[in-house]
């Protein structure tokens, strides 16, 4: 669904690719903390459009920073790597980078990292008939009832970073 938000997101990615040297990238993104974050990118005052830029764009007031945008609570945010293809329907591919916030409530409808019998797993939480289930977005995988199972929610997945051709590390 191409939308203006999506366009702005693309803008970030292009900006990030252009402005960051490798060394900053490595230092910065390894830790989830605004303090060590990238020197921000100038915020465009208008959406991407053809025609003349607004004169207001000459007065850059804020900076945008993808890290701060994605990481709301640095102390509680962790990056993890997805493995497998059973969450494709939620936009999670094999090898994608997931942003996980441990401070968020694991509410039904949210995608969570959950330790199932000791194995960290990504699934969506769903409530069906008064019971909580873990569901995959690939219909080949049957939902898993949580009742009577040893598990604890590790955190809530808030973002997926998926690299397209040319963007792989």
């Amino acid at each position: 669904m191409p939308s203006t938000r999506y366009c702005i997101y693309l803008q970030y990615l292009v900006g990030v690719a252009m402005k960051l040297s490798d060394s900053t990238r490595a230092r910065v993104i390894g830790r989830a903390e605004p303090g060590t974050a990238v020197s921000g990118l100038p915020l465009m005052g208008c959406r991407v459009r053809a025609g003349f830029p607004s004169p207001a764009d000459d007065h850059l007031e804020a900076e945008i920073n993808l890290h701060e945008h994605v990481v709301k609570r640095p102390a509680a945010t962790y990056f993890v790597r997805a493995e497998g293809d059973s969450m494709l329907g939620d936009g999670i591919h094999d090898g994608d980078l997931l942003v996980v916030d441990r401070s968020l409530e694991p509410l039904p409808g949210r995608v969570v990292v959950i330790a199932l019998e000791g194995e960290p797993t990504v699934k969506r939480l769903a409530r069906r008939g008064g019971e909580v289930w873990l569901v995959a977005s690939n219909p080949r995988f049957a939902p898993i009832p949580l009742a009577g199972r040893e598990c604890h929610v590790w955190g809530v997945v808030t973002h997926v970073l998926h690299a397209l051709p040319g963007g792989e590390r």
């Binding site: 790597r81 497998g84 059973s86 797993t121 898993i144």
Partner: peptide, 9 residues
């Protein structure tokens, strides 16, 4: 060296 999480099971 990030933690790996499985999607399928």
């Amino acid at each position: 060296e990030l933690m790996h999480v499985k999607t399928g099971r």
